[in-house]
Design a protein around this nucleic acid. Sequence first.
DNA 1: GACGGTGTAAAGTGATCGTTTTACACTGCT
DNA 2: AGCAGTGTAAAACGATCACTTTACACCGTC
Lengths: 175, 175
Amino acid sequence: MDTKTKLISAAEQLFDRHGFTATGMDKLTKAAGMSSRTLYKHAGSKTALITEVLQERHRRFQPLIEVDSVDALFNALEEWIRTESARGCLFLRAYGETGGDTPAITDAVLAYKARLYDKIKDIVAIETAEKETPELAEQILILYEGATAAAIYRGPEAIASAHKAALALLKQARS
Amino acid sequence: MDTKTKLISAAEQLFDRHGFTATGMDKLTKAAGMSSRTLYKHAGSKTALITEVLQERHRRFQPLIEVDSVDALFNALEEWIRTESARGCLFLRAYGETGGDTPAITDAVLAYKARLYDKIKDIVAIETAEKETPELAEQILILYEGATAAAIYRGPEAIASAHKAALALLKQARS
DNA sequence: GACGGTGTAAAGTGATCGTTTTACACTGCT
DNA sequence: AGCAGTGTAAAACGATCACTTTACACCGTC
């Protein structure tokens, strides 16, 4: 594993586990096993590092939403939550910690969310046979978002509940 | 307005706007219009201040969930989001920033969420005429949570979508 | 065999963190 | 008149923040 990959994956873990602001650069260098000089050569700044962590997260998460059914969408989310973490959406957490005041971070967050909504619109369009259903798509998005949040304190079963609700809404829309 | 009230409401605003860790005590003293000595006499520590802010938020939010229909629940949420903020759930943000490592904060967060879920269970029990419906209650909770999160980037319309979805699920459960 | 590239360890930058301290002023009770 | 309570302003605490610097070692390439 090369230096930059090691850095970003270590940073992703620490940010997710302890928060962005609360994670200092010394903890980062120790966790990534490199000197601060090397860290700064690769990352540039803490803001840039956070941005890259979010972009990497986006890249890694992307395949999970590249599906063609609501059923598969929630199956993938459940798998992610079970194996990765149930600490809430890392993008929204970054946005909250920075108050939306850091453009690079805000951009990365909004880009991810826009992509997510677009993909859900595509999926819903397939499932409802091309009907114009922006509201249904938003409702599926909300269930997706809510499941991620609720899983923090109610565990992975929250995803299963959201899953069923999404299928119920879809079924009702088709009739 | 007495000193402590002034302090807590100033702190709530700053924490909500800029995040907990990113908000320093100097900004707090300035915003609350008091010396750091007075601040510490009333708050004790930053952790204690955060805890009190969350408890005050809980107290202030409580009336909004003291309703007896799903319809009223989402109307109240929409009103809150429109007037107060759309920066996500302050409780979950506090939990995320501290990594769940600060017991007093974690307790305040979990207490609020437990209360919310219990209340939704009550409401759903009323609406479905005493049926045992823990899963429906969890789905309403997830819509509530998801609406709060999605409103950050999709605006108050997200609440309206969640509102409709909740009513649809309820209607289906009754039939 | 000199070289640029990439890495290390470790000290040092000034700023800011949460918190405490010192010294003083105003207020309302007794 | 005296005193406890509550407030102020401002300096100082050591720790930690993000970040830079200095000095040195290993590497494959020309």
